[in-house]
Write a protein that binds this DNA or RNA. Sequence first.
RNA 1: GCGGGCGUGGCGGAAUGGUAGACGCAACGGACUUAAAAUCCGUUUUUCGCAAGGAAGUGCGGGUUCGAGUCCCGCCGCCCGCACCA
Length: 784
Amino acid sequence: MSVTAVAPERYNHRTAEPKWQAWWTENRCFEATEDASRPKYYVLEMFPYPSGRIHMGHVRNYTMGDVIARFRRAAGYNVLHPMGWDAFGMPAENAAIERGIHPKGWTYDNIASMKAQLKNMGLAIDWSREIATCDPSYYRHEQAMFIDFMKAGLVERRVSLVNWDPVDMTVLANEQVIDGKGWRSGAPVEKRELAQWFLKITAFAPDLLSALDGLTTWPDKVRLMQKNWIGRSEGMRFTFELEDEAGAVLPEGLTVYTTRHDTIFGATFCAVSADHPLVKERAIQDAELETFRKDVAALGTSEENIERAEKKGYALGIYARHPFDASKRLPVYAANFVLMGYGEGAIFGCPGHDQRDWDFATKYNLPILPVVTPKGVAAILGDKPFLEKDGEEAVLVNSDFLNGMTVPAAKNEVARRMEAAGMGTRKVNFRLRDWGVSRQRYWGCPIPIIHCEVCGIVPVPKKELPVELPEDVKFDKPGNPLLHHPTWRHVNCPQCGGKATRETDTFDTFIDSSWYYARFCSPKADVPVDAAAAKYWMGVDQYIGGVEHAILHLLYSRFYARAMGVTGHLEMDEPFKALFTQGMVIHETFRTPEGEWVLPSDAVQKDGVWVYVVTGEALEVGGVEKMSKSKKNVVDPDTFIETYGADTARWFMLSDTPPERDIEWTSAGAEASWRFVQRIWRLVNDAATHATGNHAATDLRRATHKVIAAVTDDLENLRFNRAIARIYELSNALQAGLAAKDSAVREAADALVLLMAPMMPHLAEECWAVLGHSTTVVDTPWPK
RNA sequence: GCGGGCGUGGCGGAAUGGUAGACGCAACGGACUUAAAAUCCGUUUUUCGCAAGGAAGUGCGGGUUCGAGUCCCGCCGCCCGCACCA
């Protein structure tokens, strides 16, 4: 039986979608203005790098944000939903090197084409607030703030051992080194000594850590990752007296950091980093030690090296006097496992209760002394160090005045005695390092500094900002084009007027994205952030993006908000009130028998077997993996939207799979979404022929209101897949209601359209008109 | 090694400690059609049974509870993050 008397025409997204997109733009539906009479809602997705084309990951991310924006708008909020471009970065420069295109032209062309693609998605974005970080009107404020940060003592220039990416020929921050390799290039990172600009993120370490507790609407996983990254530990810093082979006291002491000062009587050696001053100084006289230092440096920091590396040491021929037992002296080694960058770059080794120290002691035949044991158990020397488990009661033995004490009590006692004797102090240490922000690249924000031979480091006067990137640069040799520019770097010193040179390093692009969320509040202001606008809009009520930014971008942004607070640019601490990290878009992979990757669009299923359309040969179906160009398992959003419409793409992205998990793109699933679009169209057209109901408590009416409540709750909690399941239920109920001539048919159809509107806004508008409304969905309140 | 998460039909996945498998996909049967597509009506955890109906069932083994997919303990498997951090 046919549901409709006269079959309606098929829904045509090709006419409907551009029509409504134009209508929203003309009527400025999504342009936000401050309005104190309404509650505000700021929803933001991590802005894209303008690579040239959007991918399905963007579609998923921006669809989620859009659903939230449209839902909150309908629910009565004054919504801010802006978009911009994270436009500085290496790919633009690589395009310049490889194809001779200027990074600026390349970037802006990409922005234009990606903007058109995003518009085709029908996003409810306030395009009047669009920003690009490579625009001088944006980065001049970044430069001004850097100078303010300097004045506030949040900037340092120091020579330090840095991570050098030999492929990208630039320095990387610690956060940007993954498994000992550059996060972009994948090349093994080398260590180099360079003069670098640092932002003092460590100044905020305690606050960045403790404030995590308040971010209750962030994923626990992300909070935990940040907590581990910041890495707070409570311990002691104290100094050993040193003596030489003959027992004569040396002028210098050896300061170590430890969290296990309770095990001081188990100490049998000391170890210092190969980069420790004590070692460097002796290596001048000692060729063998210098060789050792080089070997350690050559080993690098990559994961595989660390795993394979044996503990190696070099006895320095000096000894540390035990602080509480004059009869003991501990040989001091230079050791490859001690990091100069953490603590004091020096430790005492207690092999009985530390795996690493155990390995070292075993190798060099150093004594192993058990000093901690479970309560009521005699200390024994097993075949591995004894490490008490969480909550396990352990007591000190073989430890003089500590004997019988619990671990915490013994720590306390050692700290008390050392502090009383002036040997050391309790100290909280953080793993977090300051953020090195100098990059030896062209396509980034110039660091607004002038180096004067007379005056030293001089900030560019604010009235001369922005320091603009010169456009006439050449990419004909490796390294930084700014360094090779004939004139740009040569300037007069703003202070003495003498000859000086500009800083040619540019900022790490993560700086650009560390404050853009605040700039969106007042994108055209002539200060970085207009205070009144920020007071109204900040913080971001819902931030959405990939979990890959759990540390880098999110930690930097949290730091920036604080630094901007100190310098009076922004009055708030936490930029993102709620965070949601969405999963990836994954897809099957296909290979020819020769091992060539094949695009999904070139694979067809014939009699249950996947076949390559070009050659007709059977394809090997590989794993379901993240969409990537290298494996060619990509589906082009543009082509899909052209064929099936934006609403179909949006609907599919939200269906079935919970938003935080990886979603598998399948053509069958996508087509099913398309069929649902047509089904809604038929149902609504059919419902439109029915009379308005009489508010009787029919089955359909009950079902409708149950679904309204459920969908509202689901969308408030970002459970898009469940909201969609409810909408399917309502469409099933409506279909049954139509057959049963239920009097609530019109009411149900209206609700169906309004509930699906955040996900399928174009279809909703068309359906709303079919149902005889003279208003638009975008201006209709959320149903209750 | 340390830290965290997850194991439910053929698949994606539902389920404030209260009828396990909502909703979707796929598959199968039927209607419509010259035919196909689309659409519509059904079936679809496993198992026994012609049926009515019964039994088992949320990785494995225990426990708490009137009641456990959900809470607790111990395993097994997979995934993610950090990693010589003193």
